[in-house]
């Protein structure tokens, strides 16, 4: 589904990703771990198409298409979803309206009619119940005055409504209490299916107790220093990131 080859990316002239390669197939969950500054968020932003990041070499293909040629909104409509580490507060833009516009943008791209307003609300309320969100959140400004946990649940709600082929969740688990973490994990697990892939970008092993990854990668200095199965995450938790750095430079 997603192939990244020898990717170099920089921001403001500073190189962050240096020769990163990653292959993600449908049906898989990949966890990308690594210390602060290793390039985890940069990878997420580059896949989503943030224009501040410059790809200086390498390729990214998504469903066989050159992803780097697409605008952020085209990537979204093709089925890529980025769950933000810091979801943006947008006062005055109604949460329900954004959700519906987002769903419709994708449907139009697929040649489908706009969603029925009644069905849409019904579905949104069902998904919110699963996530433990008060339906009142639909009537508020996007993330406006939401707590950290509420913002993350809102990201998962958007993901659940958009049903992406590839979801990249950038530290969606950070700053969550145990109830919120469980609700968010449940939302992620509900999306797992043989035709979808999920990339969990995380600093901690904790979320992986709830969402079991097929592959775990450790990022260090802008490239993947080590890959393994879920036991790698446990080993990291035990030995710390220095272990990977030392191993990588050895």
């Amino acid at each position: 589904m997603l192939q990244i080859k020898d990717l170099d990316a920089s921001i403001g002239g500073t190189e962050i990703l240096r020769g990163l390669s990653l292959d993600v197939s449908a049906g898989e969950v990949h966890a990308i771990m690594g210390p602060n500054g290793s390039g985890k968020s940069t990878l997420a932003q580059v896949i989503a198409g943030h224009s501040d990041y410059e790809v200086t070499s390498g390729t990214v293909t998504f469903k066989g298409e050159d992803l780097l040629e697409l605008e952020p909104e085209e990537r979204a409509r093709e089925g890529i979803f980025l769950g933000f580490q810091y979801p943006v507060e947008i006062p005055g833009v109604n949460n329900a309206i954004l959700l519906r516009e987002a769903v419709n943008a994708k449907r139009r791209h697929q040649g489908l009619d706009d969603v029925d307003a009644f069905e849409f609300l019904k579905l949104a309320r069902e998904k919110m119940a699963v996530l433990g969100m008060d339906p009142q959140f639909l009537n508020r400004g996007v993330n406006e005055g939401f707590s950290g946990g509420e913002k993350k649940r809102n990201e998962i709600l958007q993901m659940a409504m958009l049903e992406p082929s590839l979801a990249i969740l950038d530290e969606t688990d950070s700053g969550l209490d145990i109830d919120a973490l469980r609700a968010v994990a449940e939302g992620i697990n509900a999306l797992r299916s043989p035709d979808r892939a999920i990339i969990l970008v995380t600093h901690y092993q904790r979320v992986l107790d709830y969402v079991e990854p097929d592959h775990v990668h450790v990022l260090s200095d802008g490239r993947i220093a080590r890959s393994g199965d879920k036991t790698l995450a446990l080993e990291l938790e035990d030995k710390g990131y220095d272990w990977v750095r030392e191993a990588a430079s050895a």
Partner: peptide
């Protein structure tokens, strides 16, 4: 905010208008 809206599938023009 513009980037956030575009990652949700809104065109730049629609995001600006919103």
């Amino acid at each position: 905010a513009l980037f956030y809206l575009r990652t949700r599938g809104l065109s730049r023009r629609d995001a600006r208008r919103m």
